[in-house]
C-alpha cells in the first residue's frame, strides 16, 4: 500500500516538474506578452496542483495535509485574478497583441 502511494506521489512530482519547466520555457520562447500569460498559466494551475498533490501523498493524514490543501486552494483562487489584472492593465495601457490570425475591432 505504501509503495503504491510512493509511486503515485513520485509520478505527480515528476509530471508537475515537467509541466512547470514547459511553462517557463513557454514564457521565455513565446513572442508577445499576451501569449506569455498563457504559458505562465500552466505553471500556476496544473503544475502547482500536481506538485502539491505529490506532497500531500507523502504527508499522509494530519494537519500538514490541510495546510497543503489551503495553499493549493489559495493558489487556485488567486492566479486567475492575478492574470486577469495583468492582462487588463496591459490592455488599458495600450499594449497590442501581435501575430493575430483574426482582425478585431479597435476600441
Amino acid at each position: 500500500m505504501s509503495l503504491v502511494v510512493d509511486i503515485l506521489s513520485a509520478i505527480c512530482l515528476l509530471t508537475g516538474s515537467f509541466l512547470i519547466l514547459s511553462g517557463v520555457i513557454g514564457v521565455i520562447r513565446f513572442p508577445d506578452f499576451y501569449t506569455r500569460i498563457h504559458a505562465a498559466g500552466i505553471t500556476e494551475t496544473l503544475a502547482a496542483s500536481l506538485i502539491l498533490i505529490g506532497l500531500m501523498l507523502i504527508a499522509g493524514w494530519g494537519l500538514v495535509l490541510f495546510k497543503l490543501i489551503l495553499i493549493l486552494l489559495f493558489i487556485l483562487f488567486t492566479s486567475p485574478t492575478a492574470s486577469h489584472a495583468l492582462g487588463k492593465a496591459a490592455w488599458k495601457s495600450g499594449l497590442k497583441p501581435h501575430g493575430l490570425v483574426n482582425k478585431h475591432d479597435e476600441d
Partner: peptide
Amino acid sequence: KIVISNIDVARLVWQPKTSMTPHFQR
C-alpha cells in the same frame, strides 16, 4: 477542462512558433 487545456498548451510550447494561432475578440 483544465487538464486537457494544460496538455494542449504544454504541447504548443514544444512545437515550432508557427503552430500558434492567436485570436483576440469580444
